[in-house]
Design a protein around this nucleic acid. Structure first.
Lengths: 239, 239
DNA sequence: CAACAGAAACATGTCATACAGGTTTTTGAG
DNA sequence: CTCAAAAACCTGTATGACATGTTTCTGTTG
């Protein structure tokens, strides 16, 4: 066992932070991949010379950020990339009014203009089909707003997935939580059935452009879609 | 005290998750803003009818995500928007090889093409000065790569700040950690001093375009900058 | 009455221990 | 060799204790 830098530690960033660092460092230095098991709490307790309380709080923190998976009886494992933490940060920003819904939509627009273009260029046939399927389901379920919304969200996430860049997927998915809280507002603002169908048509246009492999057209439709969505939100008074 | 939905809880997502939800719910329902104090652990213990262990792990988890601030003796407070959690997620993705540096750069390029345009349109004079200052410092300290890097990072974060959309700042800042780990590689690939100075010149061009308030020119220079950076990384063998 | 120092009350940080389940490994009977 | 029971190991939760940091109260003093 090494001294784990105890005396030269300046003030005291807290034992838990130290433990968190030790665990992430372990993942790094051992070159662990998603699914690989981590040391048990008892092992960490011995290695760091701290109580299980501290080690547990560290594991739990990493679990909250979805960097590791925990479950009773099993050792913790390295987690697959997940959106949980980012979602919570964004939602925290919204609920504490540090960011506005409109600002989130501006970022979404920026990102999805790109994902849609990439999707048009790189989508597999299966991905193109999945995107088209979501658009179709939106039309078919247009009686139930919540169902439309879920298909809408799935639509955008499917496009992000088809960009073949998981970082885009991560961000787009992180925004889905915010979308779930504001989507209905925009839907209600589209007073007439005609407006609502026009909005669904917009999704189909995007899906078609992706199927055709035309990135410029796809981006154009996506821009239009977002401009209308933001306008709907503004009309509804979402600052 | 209410029953806090104990029996109808289905399987059992764990008491800690429940406590986390209760705390975030508290923030939401009380409309708390950054800096406002949360209930003490003892109060939460009573309210949720669980042990302090559970409540503490919940608080600690939220603290790890930087949704709340904790410090000894004081009650926890609602935290200002912070990049901590997002950084960790991105770095986790990189170290576990679930995402590549190049993919991160592609996202950065997408986002910063937008932040730079917004900055050109919305920057205050002070922000324009700060951006130009960072570029100048890059040139002045070009002997010390690490110093250049820090000014480079500050440059990009300053542009994001000048976009006046904190969500962009959040994302750009979250990527800074990755940049710190790969920047030097790109720098070394620019073998000659001339190449290095050309790269610094690129930053000055961006700063000038922002100062002039020309979003198209600014975006053009930014695109060029990223294309060269990515090329440098690819040349260095970063997949 | 006001100011201030010290005590008390309160809060978090860490530790030790205990026990209830869940999971993996070992063992032993067939 | 197979397979089921037992043992060993692991995480989830609860309780109590104490150190240390922060706020609040209080009584004394100027």
């Amino acid at each position: 066992m090494q001294e784990h830098t105890d005396p030269p530690d300046g003030p005291s960033p807290g034992l838990v932070s130290t433990a968190i660092q030790a665990i992430t460092q372990h993942i790094r230095s051992e070159g662990l991949a998603a699914g690989d098991p981590l040391p048990s709490e008892a092992a960490m307790t011995r290695q760091l010379n701290v109580s299980r309380t501290v080690v547990r709080e560290a594991f739990r923190s990493l679990s909250a950020m979805r960097l590791i998976d925990m479950s009773a009886g099993r050792r913790a494992t390295v987690a697959k990339l997940d959106t949980g933490a980012m979602s919570m940060v964004i939602e925290h920003g919204i609920t504490t009014q540090q960011i506005s819904v409109q600002q989130v939509y501006d970022v979404r627009r920026t990102i999805e203009m790109r994902t849609v273009a990439l999707a048009a260029l790189r989508r597999t046939n299966a991905e193109a089909a999945a995107i088209a399927q979501s658009a179709r389901l939106m039309r078919e379920s247009c009686k139930s707003p919540e169902t439309v919304m879920e298909h809408d969200i799935a639509f955008h996430e499917a496009i992000a997935a088809a960009s073949h860049n998981p970082v885009f997927s991560l961000i787009v998915t992180a925004f889905s939580g915010v979308t779930r809280r504001t989507w209905v507002i925009g839907w209600r603002t589209r007073s007439s059935d005609e407006d609502q169908l026009k909005m669904i048509k917009g999704h189909e246009d995007i899906a078609d452009a992706i199927l055709k492999g035309d990135p410029r057209l796809a981006a154009e439709h996506m821009a239009e879609h977002f401009d209308k969505s933001v306008k709907a939100l503004i009309d509804a008074g979402i600052a």
